[in-house]
Computed example of a mutant assay.
Amino acid sequence: MPLVTLRDVLQPALTQGHAVAGLVTLGWEDMRAYVAAAEAENCPVILQAGPGCREHTPLPILGKMFRHLAEGASVPVVAHLDHGYTFDDCKEALDSGFTSLMFDGSRKPLQQNIDETAAIAEMAHAAGISCEGEIGFVGYADGEASAGTDPQEAAQFARETGVDAMAISVGNVHLQQDKDGGLDEPRIRAIQALTDTPLVIHGGSGVPMAQRTSLARTSNICKFNIGTELRMAFGAALRDAVNSDDSRFDRNQILKDTHDPLVAATRTVLRAFKGDDT
Rank of each mutant, 00 (worst) to 15 (best):
P44T: 05
L255G: 14
S247M: 09
T268A: 13
A233G: 02
Q253R: 10
L23C: 02
E134L: 14
A33I: 01
R212Q: 00
T218Y: 00
L81F: 08
A145W: 08
L10E: 04
T228H: 06
K91P: 08
S100R: 06
S146K: 04
G171P: 01
Q111C: 08
A49D: 15
Y34S: 01
I129A: 12
N225W: 04
G206L: 00
D260L: 14
Q177M: 13
H125R: 14
R32P: 04
E144N: 12
T228N: 06
R32A: 10
E41N: 03
Y34T: 01
C53F: 12
L194D: 01
C222N: 03
F249A: 11
F103Y: 10
L270M: 04
A49T: 14
S219R: 00
S100Q: 06
H68A: 14
P60F: 03
P44A: 06
I46Q: 00
D95A: 15
D250P: 03
C131I: 05
T197H: 04
H68D: 13
N252W: 08
T25W: 10
C222R: 01
A40F: 05
D104N: 10
L6A: 13
T195V: 07
M1H: 08
A79G: 13
M65A: 11
V170N: 03
I135P: 03
D82G: 09
D250W: 06
G128P: 07
S247R: 08
E116A: 09
L262Q: 02
L10M: 05
F224A: 00
S244F: 10
Y140H: 13
A127W: 04
Q16S: 00
A79C: 12
T195Q: 05
T266F: 01
G105H: 05
P12E: 02
V200K: 04
Q192C: 14
L262N: 01
G275Y: 01
G206D: 00
A141E: 04
G204N: 01
S247E: 15
A19H: 00
A38K: 03
A236Y: 08
D8N: 14
L3C: 14
D88I: 15
E116D: 06
V170A: 06
M1I: 15
L199F: 03
A241K: 05
E29A: 03
G72D: 11
L26S: 14
L94E: 01
F249S: 15
E144Q: 09
L262E: 02
L262T: 02
A40P: 02
G181D: 00
L81W: 05
L14I: 05
L199Y: 02
E134S: 11
S214R: 07
G128R: 09
L94V: 02
V138S: 07
R32I: 07
A167V: 10
S247A: 15
L238N: 15
P76Q: 05
T117Y: 07
R217I: 00
I135H: 14
I129F: 07
F98L: 12
N42P: 00
D95V: 11
Q112F: 12
I120Q: 08
E134R: 07
I254F: 15
Q112L: 10
D245P: 11
E41K: 04
A236T: 12
R107E: 09
L26R: 15
